[in-house]
C-alpha cells in the first residue's frame, strides 16, 4: 500500500488521527487513549496486517514525550509510524505487549529510560538498570548523574 492509500484507510479506522509526511514512512499521530484498540485493528485488519513491531521507542521533546511505534507488515511489506504524545509530568499509556509480544521488553526499556508507565503491562520492572534507579530516567534530556556521566 502506498502512503496515500494508507492515509485513507487509517482515517477510516480512526478519524481523530492526524498525519505527517516527509520522512520515509507515513507518520500517524493518535491520542494515547486510542492506542490499544487502534493497535489491534492495525494488526488484524485484512489490508493492513501490521504484524511486526520492529521498533518501539520514546523521544523526549522537553515539553512532552512522544511514543514512536514503527510497524511493518511481513506479508504486504508496507510500513507505518504511529506516534502518541504523552504528558511529561505523568506519562501513561496502555501497553501493546498483548498485540505484539516484542513490546514487552521494549516497553520495559522505555519505562526505565523515560519513566513512561505502561498500563496493564504484564511485568513492568527495571530491565537494564540496577535496582534503586526507579524515578530517575536516564534518557530524558534533563537527567544529570554526577557519578556515572562523563561530560566531554
Amino acid at each position: 500500500m502506498t502512503n496515500e492509500e494508507l492515509k485513507v484507510k487509517l482515517t477510516e479506522l480512526l478519524p481523530s488521527a492526524t498525519f505527517e509526511e516527509g520522512g520515509e514512512w507515513l507518520n500517524v499521530y493518535i491520542e494515547p487513549a486510542a492506542l490499544p484498540a487502534f493497535a489491534k485493528q492495525l494488526k488484524s485488519d485484512e489490508v493492513l496486517q501490521f504484524d511486526f513491531l520492529f521498533c518501539l521507542t520514546c523521544v523526549d521533546w522537553k515539553t512532552h514525550l512522544t511514543m514512536v511505534y514503527h510497524l511493518r507488515s511481513t506479508k504486504l511489506q508496507h510500513a507505518v509510524v504511529v506516534k502518541a504524545k504523552l504528558d511529561r509530568t505523568k506519562p501513561e499509556i496502555e501497553t501493546v505487549s498483548d498485540t505484539w509480544r516484542t513490546a514487552e521488553f521494549h516497553e520495559r526499556e522505555v519505562y526505565e529510560m523515560f519513566g513512561v508507565h505502561f498500563l496493564h503491562h504484564p511485568d513492568l520492572r527495571l530491565l537494564i538498570l540496577p535496582a534503586g534507579w526507579e524515578g530517575k530516567n536516564p534518557m530524558r534530556k534533563d537527567f544529570e548523574d554526577p557519578v556515572n556521566m562523563i561530560k566531554l
Binding site: G22, G23, E24, N27, F54, C55, H70, V81
Partner: peptide, 17 residues
C-alpha cells in the same frame, strides 16, 4: 527530521532511528 535505516547484521535486523 527523522531518519530510519535498517541493515541485516549477522544476528538480524539492526535499525538506527
Amino acid at each position: 527530521g527523522e531518519y530510519y535505516q535498517s541493515v541485516e547484521t549477522a544476528r538480524g535486523e539492526l535499525g538506527v532511528y
